[in-house]
């Protein structure tokens, strides 16, 4: 087993875990954490691809590395924006649920059915 195999399996597992967390946790903050976990797994995919492409004296293909650095920064901005939205929602509404009961429940049928 090489590093590529070990971490490749881990990356896939992290993606699975992140997806599960993103779907099932009800709290938005936990969703954001799960998204970051998911993101780290996806970035590791790039790392593994790059590691396999080690050549010309580099242990890791520099192109995927650069893509990951860009991706990490984008993911961080997304986290910051999501957190800001969440905190503002909490400030205004006093709760952070994503389901608004008023708007979400199917309205009673006005034609009497």
């Amino acid at each position: 087993m090489s590093a590529v195999t070990v971490f490749g399996l881990y990356a896939a597992a992290a993606v699975g875990l992140g997806l599960y967390g993103l779907i099932t946790t009800p709290q938005p903050l936990r969703k954001i954490i799960a998204f970051n976990l998911l993101g780290s797994g996806v970035f590791l995919l790039f790392g593994i691809v790059g590691r396999r492409g080690a050549a010309a004296g580099f242990g890791n293909d520099p192109v995927p590395q650069a893509l990951v650095i860009t991706g990490v920064v984008v993911a961080f901005s997304a986290t910051a924006l999501a957190i800001a939205l969440l905190l503002r929602l909490f400030q205004i509404a006093g709760s952070t649920t994503l389901n608004s009961r008023a708007a979400a429940s199917p309205r009673s049928d006005p034609s009497g059915n």
Binding site: F43, L44, G47, G50, R51, F58
Partner: peptide
């Protein structure tokens, strides 16, 4: 892990 993958920048 990234260090082990030889991607120190990352």
């Amino acid at each position: 892990i990234w260090v082990r993958l030889d991607a120190v920048d990352v």
